[in-house]
């Protein structure tokens, strides 16, 4: 049985509940981690957990796990090109050399 092409796939009730509870636990976790000072790592951990939550929503609530590859590529492209915008703008900002005005 090919899961990828099961167009009218019905996700079981239990699966949804497990995912939901995981999301709530991860939310509690992210709040708790924010109270502990890991320095600069705090931001990475927060977004790391957010990404795990996002993947759960995408894969299970939005059924990407059972979707055709094309739709996954379409959604992934959005994130990919966003990253591109960020990286190149960042390269500009961090490599700027302040110059004294001669005026």
């Amino acid at each position: 049985m090919s899961e990828h092409h099961d167009v009218y796939h019905v996700t079981p009730f239990k699966t949804y509940m497990v995912v939901f509870l995981s999301l709530l636990v991860l939310t509690v976790l992210t709040v708790w981690v924010a109270t502990v000072d890991f320095g600069a790592a705090n931001a990475f951990i927060a977004f790391g957990i957010a990404t795990v939550k996002a993947m759960l929503v995408l894969l299970y609530f939005m059924h990407l796990k059972y979707e055709v590859t094309t739709n996954r590529v379409i959604m992934a492209s959005g994130f990919f090109f966003l990253a591109l915008l960020f990286i190149f703008v960042l390269i500009d900002i961090v490599t700027r050399v302040p110059v004294e005005s001669t005026l």
Binding site: L84, F88, I91, D92, I93, V94, T95, R96, V97
Partner: peptide, 22 residues
């Protein structure tokens, strides 16, 4: 085409390194 937009900005104040990349 998504990787080259900075070539419109060579003299804008964008960094030299970004300019070279673009």
């Amino acid at each position: 085409s998504f990787f080259v937009w900075g070539h419109h900005m060579f003299v804008s104040g964008q960094s030299a390194i970004a300019g070279i990349l673009f």
